[in-house]
Nucleic acid binder design. Structure first.
Lengths: 222, 222
DNA sequence: GCAAAAGTGTTGTATCTACACCCATGC
DNA sequence: GCATGGGTGTAGATACAACACTTTTGC
């Protein structure tokens, strides 16, 4: 009756913003079960490895990205008996928020990986559910943390940051009020002193992420 | 190198409020390792059992309490290689918020279980860390959800609910403003029509928890 | 009556929303 | 000049903290 052992995997919900939409890194399965279906990237935890370390390793293997560039946190753990037909598998899911990677994914594992919209349906296993949980976590965290900056490059404009909120929340925000909110919130962003002209119009100041870990008061969804 | 299998346990952080302090249910270990140290209650996941189901079962075994009385949610998963000296153990921790149980814990497993203050130090394994994570989650969730009601009996006064906030947050709140906030927040509490006189003073109205799952706007920590 | 707890009213302050308006650039 | 996006000012609405004040009980 007691389950003595189970396989343990770490799967990643890697989110980024590309072409104005929220996208997730998925891999095409090359073997049964769920052959040729999209799945979250992931793999087995090593013998001498902590769960966080496994997630950091998988992130590097899949994207070539150092975990310090964006944000990585444990999401939740999934272990329903029938979720993998090959046997009992416990999956610890991690959520990462990443900037649009300038370098193409170069690693060997990433050859078959692709950025897809987060509403991609019919993923392998229970990955639909895991992805939905990850997206909802990201949406909620933008409200009361400065994590939206994890989607931006090292230096970004207020409009870039507003684009993150608008994309993740699927809403439009008032540019004027958003600007004030972000620049006056203690520790959210810091001016770099530089500025850029993106398309046309007045040049925008560049910012980098500030030291705050919580937004006080929060930036609530409309 | 690859870890093929690990033991999987579900451990519970059961929080309640007794005698005006936040307390956690702990058990004295009867075997090595960590013999006679306090530990979080928990046990192995069964062969045909989902993780949530295992948590609900453990809750019933330890407290005799039905999970519908309070609140139960997954907290986080812990799997550092050396955390259990007997081998690789992955622990999925659950957090429960419970009312002060009127019936004594009757189950057989609960014989050695005891309510202890949440600052109890030197727990077995990495249970200090798990407990701290659970307490912090509870503190944060009181801000933006109506979960404080999970610590209360089915019917409660506004003062009871305020006591929950004051105990969990270790702060004093203004009774007048708190009363207004709680009774005007949409769906937080519903009047039952009854009232009680607790000690002396004017009788207080009784309420039950409302249908809301989020507090909008939140009740922020001072 | 007095103490104690429940509950309401009010006032000043912070924050949000909506929008008028000015600024700096490309063409 | 004119379009475009960046950024500031301001008025009304909403929420909050602080606290005076009234209500209803036990003794």
């Amino acid at each position: 009756m007691t389950l003595n052992v189970a396989a343990v995997t770490v799967d990643l919900v890697l989110l980024t913003i590309r072409q104005g939409t929220l996208q997730v890194l998925l891999v095409r399965r090359g073997i049964e079960p769920y052959l040729s279906r999209w799945a979250l990237p992931g793999g087995f935890v090593h013998d001498d490895e902590d769960l966080d370390a496994a997630a950091i390793r998988e992130l590097r293997e899949e994207t070539g990205v150092d975990s310090s560039a964006g944000h990585l946190e444990q999401l939740a753990t999934y272990g329903a008996p029938g979720r993998d037909p090959r046997g009992r598998v416990i999956t610890v899911a991690y959520l990462a928020l990443l900037p649009d990677l300038p370098a193409p994914v170069a690693g060997s594992d990433a050859a078959h990986a692709e950025w897809r919209p987060v509403d991609e349906p019919e993923l392998a296993f229970d990955h639909d559910r895991i992805l939905a949980d990850g997206v909802e976590r990201a949406r909620a965290k933008l409200e009361y943390t400065p994590l939206a900056t994890a989607f931006c490059a090292r230096e970004f404009t207020v409009a870039d940051l507003r684009g993150v909120y608008e994309t993740v929340w699927r809403t439009k925000l008032d540019p004027r009020n958003f600007h004030r909110k972000v620049t006056t919130a203690e520790g959210f962003v810091e001016p770099t002193g530089h500025s850029v002209t993106r398309d046309r119009g007045r040049p925008a100041q560049l910012f980098r992420r500030g030291p705050a870990t919580l937004l006080h008061p929060p930036l609530l969804r409309p």
